[in-house]
Nucleic acid binder design. Structure first.
Length: 774
DNA sequence: GTAATAATTATTTTT
DNA sequence: TAATTATTAC
C-alpha cells in the first residue's frame, strides 16, 4: 500500500525490521510461558521525579490531564486534530519515565500498523532511545503473538498459518460442498461475512445460539461455521478473526493464562476505541479488569469518527465506557490545532445533526487567520467535476502549494476513475492510495504460497494454489485423486503427493511434473539449511518453473510481475528467517514504495482517516453517492449518521482549504443519472461556506451543442447567463427545460432544488441552477 | 484441460 | 461500461 507520510522511508523500514526480529526472538525465548521477569535486553529507563519532564511542557491543560491521570480507567475523547497521538505517546513515555511500569508492562493497542509504527517511533523519540521489547502493536499482531505462545489451547501448534481472504473463501467453498447450498441464493462471500460478524462478536460456533442461525443458508450457517473451524484446525491455520477469537476464548476459559497477563500488564492504552468490535472489547476488558477490580486502562477515541460499523465496530463501546469501567474519568480534547475556523465551523455544524453523541465541540486552538471558507461548487456532471478539481489542483500548485499536500477524498472506489483519467490527460502526478496492494498481487501471492507450502506441510490451501501453477496437468480430476489419497492416508496434500510420486502411482506427464515439483521443494529445504532462505526461495521459484512461466508469458503485464517477484525476494532479505517474513506478510500487508516526487493523492474517505492535508477536495456530495444509497437502505437512520460522520472526517482532514463538489448528473455504470445535491450540504452553516455553482457550467456552455438529446449533458446555447436562473426565479407551474430530460413543468420548489414533471422523463428532483426557464 | 464465450454485477476494507 | 466469473464447446 502506498502511504506517503512516513518521513523517512528507509529508516522506518529498518526500524520495523529490527522490532519484528526482536519480537520474533522474544516469541522463541518465552515460548509458551508468560514471564514477568526482565526481558533479554537490559533497559535504560530510570524513574524520574513526578512532573519534572520537559516532555510535559507545551501541552494544554486537557492534554496534561489525559497524560497525568495514570491510574484507574480513563476515556479520552479526542476530536479531530486535537493532538491525540501526541497525548497517547506522551502518556506512554510518562508512565515509563515516572517509573510506574517497565516498557514490557504496558500494553498499547492500535488498529493500523501505521499507527503502531508512528507510536513506537514517537515514544522512542521521547525516551531518547529506540523503544524495544514493547507490547505495542495492532490488535491482530498482539493477538498473533499471544496465540503463538498458547496455540495448544486453541488446538493449534505454535507454527500455525494465518490465511488471507482468498484462502478463507476457497476453504469455505470446499467446506460448504456437502451441504449442497444454492450458491446463487447464498453466495459464499456472504456466508463468510456472517461468520466474520460472529467472530467480531466473540462467538465461537458453540456460542452461536440457534436463534441467530435462522437467516442464512436455510439455518445451516452455524453448522458450516463449525465445520469451517474444524477444517482450519486440521490445516493448523487460522483466519484473521480467529486471532482475536482464539485468544479471547483462551483468556475466558484459562484463568491461569489470564492471571499471567494480569501480572504482566500494568497499564493498557487503546487507540481509536470507537472502532473496536465486540471481541476486541471483550479482550480488552478481560486483560484490564483485575481480580481486585482495578483497571488501568486508557482508551482514546472519537465517537464522531466512528465509520467502521459495517465491519463490526460498535460505537456503543465508547458510549458505554463509564458503565463498563465504574469510576472512569473522562477527558475531552476539543482544541483543534489543525484546521482553520471556517473548516471547524462547517464540520461542527454538520456533525451537530447527529443524535447519538457524547457531545464535543471543536474549538480552534490557534490564533491565526480565519482562513478561507469551505467552498461548495455545483457542476454540470461528473466529467466537469473531475475537470474542475484537476484544474483547481493545478492552479493551486502554480500558487506554490505542493501536490503532496492535496488530496481528493471520494466516497467509493468507482469515483476515482474519472479523476485518474483526467489527471493522466493533464499530466499531474498522482497516486491512488488503497488500490491493489503489493502483497495482494497474484504473482506475489503465488510466490508466498510456494513459501508456505515449503514451511508448512499441513497447509493444503497453499499447496492447492501452487500445484498447477505453472500448469502441470493437475486439473480438478487429478486434484480430486490427490485429495482422496490424502484423506485415506490421513496426511496433508503435499505429503500424500510426495508418497504417490515416490511409489510411482502417478504415471506419465502428471507424475513426471509433480515429481519435479516435489524434488524442487525437497532440494529447497536442503539449500535453506545450508545457504539461508533468500537463496533457497530464488532456487524454488526457478526450479518449480514459476519464473519461467512469467518469462514465457507474452502479455504486457508479465515484465511487471517479474519485477514484483524480484522485489519480493529483495524484501525477503530484510528478515532473519522465512517464518518472520511470512508473519510480516500475513499481518502487515504493507510494502514500502521508494520515495517519489510530490503527488496528488486520491483515496476513499475511509482511507483518509488519521491523515491530514492542506487542501482537500471532496467530490460527489450527492444523494445516493454520499450519503450512499446502500448504507441508507441497510442502515436507516444509523447508517445516515455514520455517513455524516464520514463527511465530518472528510472535512476535518483539511488544514487550510476544503473544497466540496456536487454534480447535476453522474454516469453510473452505463447510463447517466440525475443527481441531487447531498443533504449534508444543507447542514453546513452558511456563514462558513461559499457557494459557487456557476463555475463549471459557464465553462461547459462554450463547448456544448444545441441538442437537448445529445449524448451527455449539455447546456442549451440559448441560455445567456446561468446566474440569472436563480432558484428564486422559478415558480410553481413554470415551464422549464433541462438539458437531459427535456421540457417539463415545475411542481415543487424550495431553496436549492425544484421538482419537475418532465414530458418524457417522468418526475425528478433537481438542483434549480441546472434548470432553464422557458 | 484449455480456450472462447456468455453472464453477471457492481460501497466503504484499519488487520 | 468494464471487469470478473461461470459455462460451454472443443
Amino acid at each position: 500500500m502506498l502511504r506517503s507520510c512516513a518521513p523517512s522511508g528507509l529508516c522506518g523500514r529498518l526500524f520495523r525490521i529490527c522490532l519484528l526480529r526482536l519480537a520474533y526472538r522474544a516469541c522463541l525465548f518465552y515460548k509458551g510461558e508468560v514471564t514477568t521477569s526482565e526481558p533479554p535486553s537490559p533497559s535504560l529507563f530510570s524513574p524520574m521525579p513526578e512532573g519534572s519532564g520537559s516532555y510535559l511542557a507545551r501541552l494544554n491543560p486537557e492534554q496534561r490531564a489525559a497524560i497525568e491521570t495514570t491510574d484507574g480507567p480513563l476515556l479520552v475523547l479526542a476530536g479531530a486534530g486535537t493532538g491525540k497521538t501526541r497525548v497517547l505517546t506522551t502518556r506512554f513515555a510518562h508512565i515509563l519515565l515516572t517509573g510506574r511500569a517497565k516498557p514490557w508492562q504496558i500494553l498499547a493497542v492500535t488498529f493500523t500498523n501505521k499507527a503502531a509504527r508512528e507510536m513506537r517511533e514517537r515514544v522512542g523519540l521521547l525516551l531518547g532511545a529506540p523503544a524495544d521489547g514493547l507490547w505495542l502493536g495492532t490488535f491482530h499482531a498482539l493477538c498473533a503473538r499471544m496465540l503463538r505462545r498458547h496455540a495448544e489451547y486453541a488446538g493449534l501448534t505454535q507454527g500455525f498459518t494465518i490465511l488471507d481472504t482468498d484462502d478463507q473463501l476457497r476453504l469455505l467453498k470446499q467446506v460448504m460442498e456437502p451441504w449442497r447450498i444454492d450458491t446463487k441464493r447464498w453466495p459464499p462471500p456472504g456466508l463468510l461475512g456472517v461468520i466474520q460478524r460472529w467472530k467480531d462478536r466473540g462467538l465461537t460456533p458453540a456460542r452461536v445460539t440457534p436463534a441467530e442461525d435462522t437467516d442464512f443458508a436455510n439455518g445451516h450457517a452455524r453448522a458450516i461455521y463449525e465445520a469451517y473451524q474444524a477444517r482450519l484446525l486440521q490445516l493448523n491455520a487460522c483466519d484473521f478473526g480467529d486471532l482475536m477469537l482464539h485468544v479471547t476464548e483462551i483468556l475466558r476459559t484459562q484463568p491461569d493464562v489470564l492471571a499471567q497477563y494480569h501480572r504482566l500488564f500494568r497499564y493498557i492504552l487503546v487507540d481509536e476505541y470507537q472502532d473496536t468490535n465486540t471481541v476486541q472489547y471483550l479482550w480488552l476488558r478481560l486483560l484490564a479488569k483485575r481480580p481486585d477490580g482495578a483497571a488501568n486502562i486508557c482508551c482514546v477515541g472519537d465517537d464522531d469518527q466512528s465509520i467502521y460499523s459495517w465491519r463490526g465496530a460498535e460505537v456503543e463501546n465508547i458510549l458505554r465506557f463509564e458503565k463498563d469501567f465504574p469510576g472512569a474519568q473522562i477527558v475531552r480534547l476539543e482544541r483543534n490545532y489543525r484546521s482553520t475556523r471556517h473548516i471547524l465551523g462547517a464540520a461542527a455544524g454538520l456533525i451537530a445533526h447527529n443524535a447519538d453523541r457524547l457531545g464535543k465541540t471543536l474549538r480552534s486552538g490557534r490564533d491565526d487567520a480565519e482562513g478561507d471558507k469551505v467552498s461548495v461548487t455545483g457542476v454540470w456532471d461528473s466529467d466537469a467535476e473531475a475537470r474542475i478539481v484537476c484544474e483547481t489542483a493545478e492552479s493551486l500548485r502554480a500558487q506554490g502549494h505542493s501536490l503532496a499536500e492535496m488530496a481528493i477524498l471520494v466516497r467509493a472506489g468507482f469515483q476515482t476513475r474519472a479523476f485518474e483519467e483526467r489527471l493522466v490527460q493533464t499530466g499531474l502526478p498522482y497516486r491512488i492510495v488503497g488500490g491493489i496492494r503489493f502483497y495482494e498481487r497474484a504473482e506475489v501471492r503465488d510466490a508466498i504460497a510456494y513459501m508456505r507450502a515449503l514451511t508448512q506441510p499441513a497447509d493444503d490451501l497453499a499447496f492447492e494454489r501452487i500445484v498447477n501453477v505453472p500448469k502441470r496437468g493437475v486439473g480438478p480430476a487429478a486434484l480430486q485423486k490427490l485429495h482422496a489419497a490424502a484423506r485415506a492416508a490421513g496426511v496433508s496434500l503435499s505429503v500424500a503427493t510426495a508418497q504417490l510420486v515416490e511409489n510411482a502411482t502417478l504415471k506419465g506427464k502428471l507424475g513426471e511434473q509433480l515429481g519435479k515439483l516435489m524434488t524442487a521443494l525437497a532440494t529447497t529445504r536442503d539449500i535453506m539449511a545450508r545457504d539461508g532462505h533468500v537463496v533457497a526461495i530464488e532456487h524454488l521459484l526457478e526450479e518449480s518453473g514459476y519464473l519461467d512461466m512469467w518469462r514465457q508469458d507474452r502479455s504486457p503485464e508479465a515484465p511487471g510481475r517479474l519485477e514484483n517477484l524480484k522485489e519480493l525476494v529483495r524484501a525477503l532479505a530484510d528478515f532473519g528467517t522465512l517464518g518472520e517474513f511470512l508473519e510480516h506478510v500475513a499481518l502487515v500487508m504493507e510494502h514500502d514504495e521508494n520515495a517519489q516526487e510530490a503527488r496528488l493523492s486520491i483515496m476513499t474517505l475511509h482511507g483518509a482517516k488519521g491523515l491530514e492535508f492542506d487542501i482537500v477536495f471532496l467530490p460527489g456530495w450527492e444523494e445516493g453517492v454520499f450519503p450512499s444509497q446502500r448504507t441508507l437502505d441497510e442502515g436507516g437512520q444509523k447508517g445516515l449518521e455514520e455517513e455524516r460522520r464520514l463527511a465530518y472526517v472528510g472535512i476535518t482532514r483539511a488544514r487550510k482549504q476544503a473544497l466540496i463538489f456536487h454534480a447535476g448528473s453522474r454516469r453510473i455504470y452505463a447510463n447517466w443519472q440525475p443527481s441531487m445535491p447531498s443533504r449534508f450540504l444543507d447542514e453546513l452553516p452558511d456563514e462558513h461556506i461559499t457557494r459557487n455553482d456557476e463555475g463549471g457550467m459557464r465553462h461547459r456552455g462554450l463547448h456544448s451543442t444545441d441538442s437537448v438529446f445529445a449524448n451527455g449533458p449539455v447546456i442549451a446555447r440559448r441560455r445567456r447567463d446561468p446566474l440569472a436562473d436563480d432558484a428564486t426565479s422559478l415558480q410553481l407551474g413554470d415551464h422549464v427545460r433541462h438539458a437531459r430530460f427535456g421540457v417539463g413543468i415545475v411542481i415543487a420548489a424550495d431553496r436549492h432544488h425544484v421538482e419537475i414533471a418532465f414530458e418524457n422523463a417522468g418526475t425528478k428532483r433537481l438542483l434549480s441552477s441546472f434548470i432553464e426557464k422557458l
